[in-house]
Write a protein that binds this DNA or RNA. Structure first.
Lengths: 230, 230
DNA sequence: CGAATAGTGTCTTTAAGACACTATTCG
DNA sequence: CGAATAGTGTCTTAAAGACACTATTCG
């Protein structure tokens, strides 16, 4: 049976990523300054088109684009959601599949022509910047998802180096949630989750030496049955 | 600046919906029997291509396709996730954006040529059926999402008529979760959520008359801070 | 020693689970 | 009345919050 692929015009389809980290006590999102139209000169999310010959899935596209445009390989990556419409891109009806990612604080750089600059941008200064398309809204959605997940999972560990102290984890969680949590509650979760193991050595921290922890080999992110209270 | 839309071949992009209801004490999913290739004769999820001239967003596409193919207008609709790959559709690399929907138990019918038949199919019999593409996997993901949300929200009400009793709601939740819950816990949630209002009349139910409830005008789905236990 | 941070002990609070009890309807 | 289902009262339990207490390090 004949199938006419041109029966409908396909929408413009792209993959973008919202990559967060916590740095200097603030939640930062990775943005690139666009060197090409549309939105030349604006800040935008790193992303681009699927390479249908080589990308197995859109997950691969998201990772590939992050690496190409910013040299970052995320520690955590999941689909956020698709954003679509005819008014979000001047080129016509478009769909962007957005990924939500986390990484250890690190330096970033760009090596390709379509990107002028790459920066970690504090989510608090976003309102005052010139942001491409609907990327501002998208980042807000991603931030909400991160906050929600931080209430019932250990997802914030992916913003830390592979070894970290409870004090660092507490501080990252508090930055994400924008409110304090109980150290004791965090310790109880660390024990209950069985996701972590303590290292041999301890580390200086201004007072008593702190135990270092790392995520156990192959441990999955566990979800708790209750949220931290809001 | 020139932008070359053909720099990359766009993937094939479709929108599909997993529409559930609870009927005769079982979770059912709405499937259509495909009258056209690919997968002619198989059961598949209702969906299709975006009409980029007329659909404002992919949400509209999902609703439109459901209505065209099955005559159903869902009470609840949200994005599930996109599924992508070069091996899921014989026509090449494809992306399907999948929606997850709920509706009151109702009759369904088809009025278009590309659909031979429309049926509510018990999720328990899916393994033994011939299902198009990766739709079996997709339905499993959607079912997990439904089960997860039923643990911390009142989402199962959208499988009931606009007026319902606590007994009916309890039974729908138990069907979705595949385990019993405490009636008392459910009543506490109904009161705490402030999503519902009692109707004037009560209704027969084999014993004492039962209070009818309905979702308050404009009430949003509330999320509880704890799950029902597993 | 005192300041600072790490880590423990334990009481309170919240919301779910368990389950017995009362209430209402119908045959 | 008895069976069936609706709805309440209340004790127990699980896990978070609050917060005081001890432990260790450094200057």
């Amino acid at each position: 049976m004949h199938y006419d692929i041109n029966e409908y015009k396909n929408p413009l389809f792209t993959v973008d990523s919202v990559l967060f980290t916590v740095k200097e006590g603030a939640l930062k999102v990775l943005m690139v300054r666009r060197a090409k139209a549309p939105c030349e000169g604006c800040w935008g999310l790193p992303g681009g088109f699927v390479d249908i010959e080589n990308d197995m899935t859109t997950d691969v596209t998201a990772r590939r684009k992050l690496k190409e445009k910013t040299s970052v390989e995320p520690r955590y990556l999941e689909q956020l959601q698709a954003f679509s419409g005819s008014d979000r891109d001047p080129r016509g009806f478009s769909v962007t599949l957005v990924y939500f990612a986390l990484v250890t604080e690190q330096d970033v750089s760009s090596h390709i022509a379509s990107v002028e600059d790459v920066q970690w941008i504090d989510v608090k200064v976003l309102p005052s910047l010139d942001i491409a398309f609907d990327h501002k809204t998208i980042i807000e959605h991603a931030q909400k998802r991160l906050q929600q997940k931080a209430l019932y999972s250990m997802i914030p560990v992916y913003c830390l180096p592979s070894q970290f102290t409870i004090g660092q984890l507490k501080s990252v969680i508090e930055t994400i949630l924008e409110k304090p949590i109980q150290r004791k509650s965090l310790i109880r979760r660390i024990e209950a989750s069985d996701m972590f193991e303590g290292a041999e050595q301890k580390v200086k921290s201004g007072g008593r030496l702190a135990q270092l922890y790392s995520v156990k080999e192959g441990a999955d992110l566990v979800n708790f049955e209750r949220n931290f209270s809001v």
